[in-house]
Structures are given as structure tokens and as C-alpha cells.
Write a protein that binds this DNA or RNA. Structure first.
Lengths: 349, 349
DNA sequence: ACCGCTTGCTAAAACCATTTAGCAAAACTG
DNA sequence: CAGTTTTGCTAAATGGTTTTAGCAAGCGGT
């Protein structure tokens, strides 16, 4: 196999056959390491292999698979499409659920291939083959940015697709009930006496996180009659959150409560708060979202409005299979209610 | 598209064509949503779609792709194979590096598809199509258990493969220098005065983690002339580690230093130590491995022997491309030296 | 000179979907 | 009513690989 940069046309076994003066069948036998049982002489085999290398032969998987397919077996290709920038535990969770469902449906004449493919956030439309309909039978799409959502809304998917975490017209979506996470976290902070709450978010807002920020602001406005301060971090990494919040605290702005739209941001927030010499929750309370299993291992344990990811996945996977089966999808949209876990980080007095 | 359980033979567009009394061409046009421009009547289109559903048609992607392929374009399919049980950040890192390399090699007549596929730890051999050679042009395999390693050692890969994190005869491997992580962590603990060190590991030991445990034990034996205590956790989740270590501490066994072969275990260890009323590092020092970016956000920050993952990935990806190009791989094995980050968790006095 | 065996290969079919060129009938135009 | 256009479809080729059946040549034996 080779990636010759110069080669003009694609090299097939026919080219190799011509090059070495043999038949495609012989070439195929050699390249599939079947030359012994097919009685191709070792000398010819060597010539074929050498030709393959010098010509820069790259096997065409489509051709191979087409032929290799047992006539009574169909393969169904499923994928989870997510952005590189996304929190991974969710994706892994989703894949595991998908694999499990696939395993359950696997039988003598149906088998599945499931995988993860990633795109750069905001550039989903550049992903090759997404709309060709010759790669997947079904996909679950998650962690998209508004630019991606726009693309999805305008796209015509030629196969089963479920969108996780946002609402896209014309596609099947599973998402958390909008409003709840942001509003409840505002309530939680206000209830324990916070008067100067802050929300930490990344620069790139997905629909879900944007909704969380907005709902939080609304909640604070209603409860305190005051604007919540939103702090934008460069990205979702703890270091960015720490830097941003440290900057805010060092400017001596009042701050007695933090809502982080992502748990990785909460990690950074904890660090910023402790380096500022403040204590959680007495000086500053913190609420997170629950992407990771880690929340209860924060010190002190982090209160979360569970991102409802497992629940969303639990809905999305069967929905995808219903679409695959061609069942007229009664439900185009499934809403999932996040649950609230109150821990030390919001416990005062 | 449907997954009819009863259907005997695979349904193709020919079956549909026969069923509705039309030609395969017409059926194809309809199913590809091309029926308008191909002037298939809406009525016929409806009949075709209905037939597809009732017969349970599942498109054969290989057939589709074969035909759809632009004649001067070749697609190269790369994948990272990892177990479900693995720490994901590493995998994401690897995928990102792979994608980047692929993007760099993409041109007018070569394009790449990269993805992650997962297997159940210890059951890699059950993954369908792994040895058929009709799915991938190249793979990076990581997070295998001994059972998987055994399989890999006996397998004949018909395509480019690089193994990450362990040594397998006959395959190209990239791994951390054995011995270093375990030995250095033993040294670090001993140097700051630990006399009763403990190592925490999961029940399922990969080659890398087994090596770490063994080297740690050797290091302790040599330095202190005493056996290190190894505590086995049910899995790698923080909760398991916390439970295991709490059990150990509550039995009042002396313990003044912990080495965790995985960072998720360190998370649990921190919890166990603080609930036991001990302080890090004064009562018990902790060393981890650095799988996550999170180490410096532990409180106190965790000393790590960086798992060398980025370095391993940085070696593995170019190696894979060299294999793809058919370059006679000079290097069958690349060793990477992990670097040491000493932080608060091992700083005394 | 003929039979049977081995060696080393080839021809052709098969896998499934898509597309291009074109055909027959119907509908319209003058 | 002949000529043209439109409608609605079909036949056949194409894509790359693998496999099955079988052919031709050579060799040993009689």
C-alpha cells in the first residue's frame, strides 16, 4: 500500500496485472496472501508485490467489501459524529449504548459496525461524504455549534440521523428541556444566599450551553432584579476557566456564586477560587453540570444539574433504530429532564 | 431502510424492482431521491419507497461507494481501535493527531476517513472484520488487555497496524520505556520519606499498567528492602479506588504514600485519604500517571509521571503513514520516555 | 503415443448500486 | 395528420475485487 503523490490515475489491480504481465486474478491472489493455495509461484508473487509498491497501489475498500460480503449478510454502519472539542465521556457513553443496541440486533444476517467520527466544531459541513449517503446507514450527531446547526437545518439527510442536545427543524432530536439547567442553577445559588452570581462559559457556545447561560441570566434577573455576570473563557479547558475567573476575582469584583456550563470549567473554577484564598461554598458556591462522573470527587463535592446525558443517550439510540427500521417516527423530538444533585459545593450553614 | 428480522435473503434494488415491476435503474433513482430529475412519476416513486420499506431494504454501502467513487480519487480508511474501558482523553488526542496528519496528506486524488472504533477489553478477537482486510487501510490499536495482545501476536494483519502502549512481536509498536514509570514513582515516594508505600491498580491489567506495578514493586523492594502493598480495584473508576483505599486505611495499616497507575484511580485515592482525615502530602503522598490534563487541578496538584501519551501518539501517527506508504519500516519498535512532573502531592517540608 | 498428475496461471462471473444513452408512447403543435 | 416535444421508463455499462472453474504446458510412467 502506498500513497504516491505523483500518480495520475488511481492504481487498481488491473494496472498491476498489466505491469507484471499477469491476470488480475493472480494479482488479487497475491495481494490477499492467497498465492500459495492458488498456486502462484513465489517468483511471480514477489514481482506483484514489488509492482504494487512501486505503482503505489491502494486497495479500494468498497470493491473489496462488495465482493467479500457474504450474500446473506448485510452490514449496517452506524456512527456517532462529534466535534473534537467536545467533552468525551458523553460520547463514549453514547457509543457504548449504541454498541449494546447493535449487539442486541446482530444476528445471522445482520451485523453492525459502529464508530466515532469527529469534525472540527463549526465545520461539520466540510466533513466529506456526510450527505452522499454512501458511508453510513445511521448517525447520531452531537456537540455541534450554531454554524453546524445551520448546516444541519438546511441539509437533506439521505439516511437515519438523530441529533443530540439541540433542536434542528426536520431532524429527529433528543435534547434536555431548555431552561431547566440554567434556571435551576440560578435558583440553587440564590436560595443559599448568593447575591453576586457569575456564569462561566466557553467562547464557542453550543445550543445547549447558550441556552443554559441565557436561562441562568433570566433566572438571576427575575430573582434578584440584577444582571448576572457572564465570563467567557477561551475554551472549555480547566486552565482557561481558572485564568478567567482568577482575573475576575483579582479585580475585586463581588462574587459569591459560580455556575459553570461545563464540568471542565468547574475544575478550573475550583482552582481559581482556592488560589484567591476563598472557600467553597462559604465564600463562593459552585454549581456545575455533570458531564463527568467526577463531580462527587471534587473537593468539596460539586453540585450538578446532571446534563441528562445518559437519559438523552437512552432515548437517542432506540430512536435511531426505529428510524433504521423505517418506522414512521412518531416522535421527532424527545425532551429529557435533567436531574439535580445537590452536594457540598452549594451547602451553607 | 429496515431491519426485518424474518427476511431470508438480502434485499437489493433488484428485488424491489421485481416486486414493483420496474427496472433497478428506476428503483435506484427513487431511493437516491433523484426521481424528479430522472422523470420517475411520483406514483411510481411512492410504490418503490413502500416496497423498500415492506421488503426491509438495507442499502449496501460497499456497492454505493464503489460506484460513487470519483475515478481519480482514492479513499483511505484509518481507525483507532480502543477498548470501551479506556481513558478517553488519550484516544481523542490520538484521533486528533491522526486527523491532522490525514488532512495534511489529503489532496485532489486522496482523501481520508478517520474514526474511532471500540471493542470490549479482552475481546478484540471478536471484533468482526478485523482480519478480513476489507475495512481499513490502517489502524492504531491501543488499550488492549493481555488476551488481546495474545490475539494480536498470533494474527496476521493484512494492512498497516501500529500498536500503542505495548510490545507485540511482529507488529509495529510504540510504547513507554518499560520500568521508568514504576521505578521513578517508587523513587519519588521513597525520597520524600515514605516507608509504607501502596500501589493502586485495576483488576484488569494492560501490559503498560502491569509493567508499572511490577517496576514499582521492584523499586520499593530495592530501596526499602520491603514489599510494596498492591491494592486491586474492581475497575478504574474513582469510586472503586476510593472504596479500596478506604478499606485499606480503615484497617489501620500503615500507609504514607500511594502510587496510582491511572489518574482516575488517583481521584478516588484523594477522596479516600481526605475522608480518612489524612492530609496530602504530609500524611500520605500521592503519585499518578498523567493521563488527563487534570493532574495540576487536583487539590493539592498531583505529581505525575506523564504517561507519555502525546509523545507516543506523536510517534505512532507518522509511523502509520510510513507503513501506508509501504516504506520498509526501519523501526518496528519506538520507545518513548515519560517525563516527570513533581507537584504538591509529593512535596514535604 | 497416450494417460494421469502437477504446476501455474487465466477467463469470467459475482457482489450491488448508479448513471448515461436511448426507446416507446403519449401529448402537444402547426 | 405529420412532426416535435415531453413523459416515463429500460438496457447496459461501470466501479474494483475475489473466487470458481478450467485450460495449457510439462513431466513421469508405460
Amino acid at each position: 500500500m502506498g500513497l504516491k503523490p505523483g500518480s495520475k490515475t488511481v492504481v487498481t489491480i488491473y494496472q498491476i496485472a498489466e505491469y507484471v504481465g499477469m491476470s488480475p486474478a493472480a494479482v488479487s491472489s497475491v495481494l490477499a496472501n492467497r498465492h500459495v493455495e492458488r498456486r502462484i509461484s513465489e517468483e511471480s508473487a514477489k514481482r506483484v508485490r514489488e509492482a504494487a509498491r512501486t505503482l503505489g497501489y491502494v486497495p479500494n475498500m468498497a470493491g473489496r467489501r462488495l465482493r467479500a460480503h457474504p450474500p446473506a449478510m448485510r452490514q449496517i454502519d452506524l456512527a456517532i459524529l462529534t466535534s473534537f472539542e467536545a467533552p468525551l465521556p458523553i460520547v463514549s457513553q453514547a457509543l457504548q449504548a449504541l454498541q449494546k443496541a447493535a449487539d442486541a440486533e446482530t444476528n445471522a444476517h445482520t451485523r453492525f459496525a459502529v464508530g466515532i467520527e469527529m469534525f472540527h466544531a463549526g465545520r461539520l459541513r466540510e466533513k466529506p461524504g456526510l450527505l452522499d449517503g454512501n458511508r453510513y446507514h445511521g448517525v447520531i450527531i452531537t456537540n455541534t455549534l450554531p454554524a453546524d446547526d445551520e448546516f444541519l437545518a438546511s441539509a437533506q439527510f439521505p439516511y437515519a440521523a438523530v441529533v443530540l442536545g439541540r433542536r434542528i427543524p426536520n431532524l429527529c432530536c433528543v435534547l434536555e428541556v431548555p431552561d431547566v439547567v440554567g434556571r435551576r442553577s440560578a435558583e440553587v445559588l440564590v436560595e443559599i444566599g448568593c447575591r453576586h452570581p457569575v456564569v462561566l462559559h466557553g467562547r464557542m457556545l453550543t445550543q445547549a450551553t447558550a441556552e443554559r447561560v441565557a436561562a441562568f441570566k433570566r433566572g438571576i434577573q427575575e430573582a434578584l432584579g440584577r444582571k448576572a455576570i457572564a465570563l467567557e473563557c477561551a475554551d472549555l479547558r480547566p486552565a482557561s476557566a481558572a485564568m478567567t475567573l482568577t482575573g475576575h476575582l483579582s479585580r475585586r469584583r463581588p462574587c459569591d456564586g459560580v455556575f459553570t456550563v461545563t464540568d471542565s470549567l468547574a475544575v478550573g473554577a475550583y482552582r481559581a477560587i482556592s488560589t484567591a484564598g476563598k472557600r467553597i461554598p462559604h465564600d463562593i458556591a459552585v454549581v456545575g453540570v455533570g458531564d463527568y462522573e467526577l463531580a462527587e470527587f471534587f473537593s468539596p463535592p460539586l453540585s450538578t444539574l446532571a446534563g441528562a446525558n445518559d437519559a438523552m443517550v437512552a432515548q437517542a439510540v432506540p430512536l435511531l433504530f426505529r428510524l433504521l427500521r423505517g418506522e414512521p417516527e412518531a416522535t421527532r423530538e424527545i425532551l429529557v429532564v435533567p436531574s439535580v444533585f445537590l452536594r457540598e459545593s452549594t451547602r451553607r450553614g
